[in-house]
Amino acid sequence: MFAIKAGAQSPAFTIADSLYQLGNYVEAINAYAKEGNEKSSLQIARAYTAIGNNEKAIAQYLDIIDKNPNQVLAKFELGKLHAKTKKWEKAQLVFENLTVAGTENPEFYYYLGSALQKKGDSKNGNEALKKAVELDSTHLRSIYLLGKFYVGAELPSMAHEILDLGLRSAPSDPALINLKALTYFNNGNFVEAITLFERLLEMGEFQPFIFKKLGYAYFKNWEFDKAKKNYRSLEQIPNFEADAYFGLGEVYLMEKQLDSSKIFFKKSIEERRYVFDEEYKNLGRIARLQNRLKESLDYYTKAWEENKADFFSYYQVCIMADEYYKDPETKLRNYQKFLDDFDRAPSFLRQRVKKRVSELKEEMHFAKK
């Protein structure tokens, strides 16, 4: 009978709980405050979190922990709140404390690993995430973060290994399927990537990046009609028209339909709100194939002006100016500028330029005689 009484809630606490469940958090806080015990303090912290008053929630959690350093639940919720508010250093400290305590809880290691990754400490973050997976091989959030890191770090074998582990327990998880598709895509395995991206579409994941990746994968796989289909789907999504037009421009260029390709590259330029160096380079290439040397020169010049660190664009400026102009001094100035401005360009390219500079100087020398 004593045990039953000890575990029973007071009528006031029951009323406070009802208010909390109904979302009347302010009234619930006032009701819990009348109880003055640890359980009601925990509920007050949760209510403050629910209404978005994170500072008061954190203060409440800290007060609970100060009075009872063994209150693991308060620490856990405090750590998650620090993570939610992107206070990664504080989140790390809380979850380090929880993991040092010897509690073999994969959630603690997941949040610790996530906080460390956010701070830029990938090495220790990944170790914590691996520990979470070691404790629970179905811990998908830890698997996802590890997979995402391996994909970004271009470690395909490690990415496939961890993602396959996750897919064994959750074979239809779209986030894991997407990461595995990206692993194949980034490694140039377009056939495998296509299969997985198509599966995502079948699952209803009509995301713009899927259409974009599929369009490019089909393009690289020489399946031009399917590439166009996906770029046309991408075209229907607001703010992605430029990417769609650029992709279509590439496909038509590969098919040698130069006029159509030119139209789409120009449409891509019209839609974009930033640099157009790739579009201008492709337009320059088209003009050159059509033997429109001055037009090609102008487009490559625009590409270089959009991105003056691009040595390839300026090299094309040199080549087209060399073909278009008759004056060797004009040609020489361009090549010399290349050597002066792009000392980190590939050595084979610099050697070509140096050779042409020597030829032009020799030509000018003999012309004076």
Rank of each mutant, 00 (worst) to 15 (best):
L182Y: 09
L182T: 06
T183M: 13
T183N: 15
Y184G: 03
F185K: 04
F185D: 13
N186K: 15
N186L: 13
N187P: 11
N187D: 15
G188D: 15
G188I: 11
F190S: 13
E192A: 09
A193P: 09
I194M: 08
I194D: 09
I194F: 12
I194C: 11
I194W: 12
I194T: 04
L196Q: 13
L196F: 13
F197T: 07
F197G: 07
E198V: 06
E198L: 08
R199V: 05
L201P: 11
E202A: 12
M203S: 14
M203E: 08
M203P: 05
M203D: 02
G204D: 10
G204K: 10
F206V: 13
Q207R: 15
P208F: 05
P208Y: 05
F209N: 15
F209Y: 14
I210E: 07
K212A: 11
K212W: 10
K212G: 03
G215R: 04
Y216M: 12
Y216Q: 08
A217D: 08
Y218Q: 05
Y218L: 03
F219Y: 15
N221H: 12
N221G: 06
N221W: 04
W222E: 15
E223A: 11
D225T: 10
D225C: 02
K226C: 08
K226Y: 09
K226M: 10
A227I: 09
A227H: 02
A227F: 05
K228W: 04
K229C: 00
K229W: 01
K229E: 09
N230A: 04
R232D: 14
S233W: 02
S233C: 06
E235L: 14
E235K: 12
I237V: 09
I237E: 09
P238H: 06
N239W: 07
N239Q: 13
F240H: 08
E241R: 11
E241N: 06
A242E: 14
A242T: 05
A244V: 02
A244T: 04
Y245K: 06
F246M: 15
G249N: 06
E250F: 01
E250Y: 05
E250T: 04
V251E: 00
V251Y: 00
V251S: 03
L253H: 04
L253I: 01
M254L: 05
M254Y: 04
E255V: 01
K256C: 01
Q257E: 09
Q257T: 01
D259C: 01
S260A: 05
K262M: 00
K262Y: 04
I263E: 05
